[in-house]
């Protein structure tokens, strides 16, 4: 059995667990705990170790989706989860600009771990106070070549599109390495 891993990361409450739940064929194995910090009490629970989803491609191939814990105090888990990843997705809540800096920092940290392709997904684009992608690109300091994709983590089609764009980037990088 061959396995492939994609990591879904991003700041606290960006929607990583929902993102994985939308496409996983199994109930996401989630290690959530009740929020204890007042400052982070914008949702009831948070992931403390990882989320784990699965997509079976065939009898010989399985894609695993790993969601990282969003709170910085669990960042010791990030490098462990990144081991052997095919690529990663940075999920950002488009309605919470106060998390953009954290998102940038997480992106830089993961870029430092491994030279794998990545895409940035702007979650909650269906909400009225979501930032526009062009503005988010500037705020997140993303270069033009970095894919910044609109996303609604609870919408399966939107999540599929983000995953596909990451895989297209993986293919493009393989081609570039061949010609380079």
């Amino acid at each position: 059995m061959q396995t492939v891993k994609i990591v879904v990361t991003g700041p606290f409450s960006a929607g990583k667990t929902e993102f994985i739940q939308s496409v996983s064929e199994i109930d996401v194995v989630s290690t959530e705990r009740k929020i204890t910090s007042e400052a982070e009490r914008i949702k009831a629970t948070t992931t403390v170790a990882m989320d784990f989803g699965r997509i079976t491609v065939g009898e010989d191939l399985v894609l695993y989706l790993f969601g990282t814990p969003g709170q910085r105090r669990f960042d010791f888990m990030w490098e462990i989860l990144s081991e052997g990843m095919l690529g990663f997705i940075v999920l950002i809540d488009s309605t919470r600009p106060e998390t953009f800096r954290e998102g940038r920092s997480i992106l830089e940290t993961f870029k430092a771990y491994a030279p794998t392709p990545y895409v940035v997904a702007a979650n909650k684009q269906d909400l009225p106070d979501a930032w526009e992608l062009d503005d988010m690109r500037i705020a997140l300091r993303l270069q033009d070549h970095v894919k910044l994709l609109p996303c609604v983590a609870t919408d399966k089609e939107a999540v599929k599109k983000v995953l596909l764009e990451l895989l297209y980037s993986v293919l493009a990088e393989m081609d570039a390495n061949e010609t380079g």
Binding site: V23, L61, M85, L86, A114, P115, L163, L167, Y168, L171
Partner: peptide
């Protein structure tokens, strides 16, 4: 890099075929 990306398959063609299978599967979800 500290960590190396990992993709099953020995040759580049095998690896590309594997990514294409992933793409096909996700499209079909």
């Amino acid at each position: 890099p500290k960590l190396k990306p990992s993709l099953p398959g020995k040759t580049r063609e095998e690896q590309k075929s594997l990514v294409n299978r992933l793409i096909g599967r996700i499209r079909s979800l």
